[in-house]
Amino acid sequence: MPLSAVAIRNYRSVRNLWLPVEQLSVFVGANGVGKTNLYKALALLRRAADGTITRAIAEEGGLDSVLWAGPRSDRKPMRLVLKARFDELEYAVEMGLPHSYEIEIGLPQPAEAAFPLEPLVKAERLVARDGRREIVMMERKGPLVTLRNDDGKRESHQAAVLSSETALASFRDGARYPELEAVRREMLEWRLYHDFRTDAGSPIRRPCHAITTPTLSPDGHDLAAVLATLSVIREDTAELDAAIDDAFPGGRLEAGDEGSWCRVSLTFPDMPRSFAVHELSDGTLKYLCLLGALMGYRLPPLIALNEPETSLHPSLLAPLARRLASAAGHTRIWIVTHSEDLAGHLQQETGKRARRVVKPAGATGIEGLKLSGEYADEDE
């Protein structure tokens, strides 16, 4: 059930965008044009799936900080709107239809029981589309949630969720509401990697518990377990070994278990001993984290990377592009980057050029993107 498009409305510098999600989506542009806002909007959508989107907005500075920063109309309240569209959904009852999930966030009205500046969920909608016909699986308007159950019957639930919670995360009966469960689980499996801490106190630099770990966590603290899983559990590191040699010619990675812990070390051909993760440079450790994210035992359905080139030596950009191109054959990759060099290497590897983020008239946009959510060059 791959993510096929994302809509963002009234989020920071984004006034209104309908973005197709390609197998490899690369967004490049200058500072201040809103590239990171595209990434953060995707991260907020995922927080809707675990029910913490309002808390995430509060952590970003509150709704006043998150809402569209340009001119506003006073005629109606401003709302943040996020929407995800999925390709054919397959689940237990074998219904294959395009689905979309939409959520609206706004400030409290005078009669609502909430803190004055608290971000609240105003509306949610989960829709399956059969041709031109919409089948509403879940609709929320304020405190009222209406659901279509597995028998095709409609149910109404009044005040079943708080305004700070999402219906998507609250109704977890997969047998009764299979579409809702399928979309929620799909979004929860997304992995967004904003940055990896590489300072001396970073948990990545310490051993981690020896537990089979198929997918790297967002902060990378289980890197050693992810790499050791390939070595000890899958017993196949050929691809990983090739990736290490590509980035560090002659280098050799060792990942395994010592008692109840997993450890990683890297050997360079010009050095007489191996180096544990606590000894590696920031750039080298960051690159190992990217390999862990892109080459784990099981890749998530979507991997989003925010400026993956940070701290990397320019010589690592071509090997990174090759790893990204390879991973894009197995999952969807979403990248925002400053690096024209990385974008160029990716185009060389995949034939797909990066989408340029611009900011005409103060609103973030994408060159060549039409209102329909298609790119002009695809018509050509």
Rank of each mutant, 00 (worst) to 15 (best):
P119S: 13
Q109C: 09
R154P: 01
E254D: 13
N149T: 13
D199R: 07
V357E: 00
K122I: 11
D236K: 04
G174N: 06
K370A: 14
E94D: 14
H157V: 15
I333N: 01
G70P: 02
A247Q: 04
G62M: 05
S326P: 01
L317P: 06
D130Q: 15
V226L: 01
L227W: 07
E88C: 07
A276Q: 08
L63E: 04
I135T: 11
L45S: 04
L240F: 03
R298A: 14
L107C: 09
S274E: 15
M271F: 11
S65F: 04
I103F: 00
R205P: 01
F268S: 02
I333W: 01
G296D: 09
R172W: 00
L97H: 06
R172D: 15
T212E: 15
K141L: 13
A84G: 08
A238D: 13
V136Q: 00
A276T: 14
S372C: 06
A361L: 12
S164M: 09
R298I: 07
D222K: 06
R176T: 12
T213V: 09
D379K: 10
L305G: 07
V277E: 00
L97T: 03
L253H: 03
E279D: 11
K122H: 15
T229M: 01
G201I: 00
R252M: 11
F171L: 02
A276G: 15
A224T: 02
R15L: 09
A123F: 05
E60Y: 12
L107Q: 12
A41T: 09
L371I: 09
M271G: 05
R12Y: 02
G29P: 01
Y287P: 03
Y287A: 06
R323W: 12
G362P: 07
S265W: 06
A111E: 11
K286T: 13
G70M: 02
A69R: 15
A7H: 14
S265E: 14
M137L: 12
T215Q: 00
